[in-house]
Amino acid sequence: MHRLRSIKERSARWFMRIIAYCSILFLIIIGIALFVKAFPAIKNNGLWELLTSARWRPSGGKFGFLPFIISTLYVSAIAIAIALPLSLLTAIYLNSYASKGIRRFFAPVIDLLSGIPPVIYGVWGTITIVPFIANYIAPHFSGQSSGYSVMAGGIVLAVMIIPLLVGLLVEIFNSIPKEMTDASFSLGATKLQTVKRVILRRSLPGIVAVTVLSVSRAFGETMAVLMVCGNSTLMPHSLLDACYPIPALIANNYGEMLSIPGYESALMLAAFLLFVIVFLFNGISRLTLNHLEKRFHF
């Protein structure tokens, strides 16, 4: 009886330990596997050439990623520019101004927004944002745009990262000890002064970390962006041009990538690049956030 108990205990422990080590290994395996797959492309074309050339002719063996890299940066920048101010204002409101009732009402709103699948955001974008840009915004500028554009991608992406940003920002603001804001109030500071000089100041590293985290989310978002950004392999020159971010490129070409030599490897390189960037961005911001969490909870 005693023996059986300790055997059970020991085998459970071993099973769990193996899973724990495997899960750490998994991260490394993904990186290595993608790199191995991407290696032929790097060997044939040279990494520098791949990253800086704008010529994309898979059938001719030309894989210049520059338009896709620029598209990714462009779309993500717009998304952050829209989402960050909205999220910051909302998070400050929820932390320092809103009543309990409003806070309780807001929690499911954020949950639902973050739960909506990318493909639904894509449908919504195609039905509303794309025609709006084509019919109302484009005519004021260059004139011709299908609406499937950098701007559409940026707007849809912004809506998608807002719940992530608001959720994390509220958490950061809530981790500020009440004694600290009380100290500011008891010196006669107004709420706005306390927000500006104490809350934001204290949270600055956290805000940066959260922004980096959502940038990396924006970099990797595929389906929704794919559905509204137009997917042109040409370099985008304005907000109203079509563009082609890296994830969309991978998703759109899976069908033919096995039939053209070198294509698969080039697309795997794209996936590898995404992985590395996300790894670094996530790693840095998570470390920052963990560090802050440790320092702030006492």
């Binding site: 998994f26 993904i30 596997a33 990797g220 998703a251 996936a271 995404l274 790894f279």
Partner: peptide
């Protein structure tokens, strides 16, 4: 070890689904 496991899952949490798709395909 717990810290490292949590950290690697935090990173995995941020890996875009298209990368999992590509990795799964390669696998």
């Amino acid at each position: 070890l717990a810290g490292i496991v949590r950290f690697s899952f935090d990173i995995l949490l941020g890996v875009p689904s298209i990368v999992y798709g590509a990795f799964g395909f390669a696998l």
